[in-house]
């Protein structure tokens, strides 16, 4: 019986690869969007504007204090009530963007705040504007502090794409979920899903560990 199921799995393996491809698409696009927005928010968050900092802080608290699955439901079911109706794939991207940007914002803000005040002082003494100081002096130095946890966050975001399966995006986890109905070998199906996730996450984890060691030197 198991052999029969195993051969069926082999048959529909391409379906899993399509799911992996969808996961990669969602992850890749989300990571780019989150990084861009996250950096901008992070720079504002480490700045001096109290009101903006507070607004961003509230947003970050919401993104970090509620489960991602609840955030997805809010984007997919509640936003339409407020006028924004989205299909599954764009809704997934939006939810990932909202959540991921908040986490990256915090990483970037910590990185910038880790640079000693003296650097700001010497940069401003040479006449650079605030924005130039940030761009030319502070940010390049803070990258050392930012990149390792950033890569770690990318791994977390890739794993979080599995949750968008709940609104019907046919990514890898959902492929497993619909497959297990027709091939009731839960262990095999989700072991396969796990292996495919492992193959994209583990290299990134190794990269993150390597970067952390490099930074500690």
């Amino acid at each position: 019986m198991m052999a029969f199921y195993f051969s069926r799995l082999v048959e529909i393996f391409p379906f899993f690869l399509k799911g992996l491809w969808m996961t990669t698409k969602v992850a890749f696009l989300s990571l780019i969007i989150c990084t861009l927005i996250g950096f901008i928010l992070g720079m504002i968050r480490s700045g001096n504007n109290r009101i903006l900092k507070w607004i961003i802080g509230t947003y970050v608290a919401f993104a970090r204090g509620t489960p991602f699955v609840v955030q997805i439901f809010i984007v997919f079911f509640i936003f339409p009530e407020w006028g924004l109706q989205l299909e599954a794939f764009p809704a997934a991207l939006l939810a990932m963007a909202i959540m991921g940007s908040a986490f990256i914002c915090e990483i970037v803000a910590s990185g910038i705040n880790a640079i000693p005040k003296g650097q700001w002082e010497s940069a401003s003494s040479s006449g650079l504007t605030k924005l130039q100081q940030l761009r030319l002096v502070i940010l390049p130095q803070s990258m050392k502090v930012i990149v390792p946890p950033l890569v770690g966050q990318y791994v977390l975001l890739i794993k979080d794409t599995s949750v968008v399966s709940v609104i019907g995006v046919m990514e890898l986890t959902r492929v497993g979920w619909v497959t297990v109905v027709r091939i009731p070998e839960g262990l095999m199906v989700f072991a396969l899903v796990g292996i495919l996730y492992f193959s994209i996450s583990y290299p990134l984890i190794l990269l993150s560990n390597y970067l952390e060691q490099r930074m500690a030197l």
């Binding site: 791994v155 794993k159 979080d160 794409t161 599995s162 949750v163 399966s165 986890t173 497993g176 979920w177 297990v180 009731p184 070998e185 839960g186 262990l187 199906v189 989700f190 072991a191 899903v193 796990g194 996730y197 492992f198 996450s201 583990y202 984890i205």
Partner: peptide, 23 residues
Amino acid sequence: IEVIRSTPLLVQIYFLYFGLPTL
């Protein structure tokens, strides 16, 4: 530890939820 860290929690949940009955 590495398997847990490299795979999504939802997949781990489904693995047990759908897998344990088959055993």
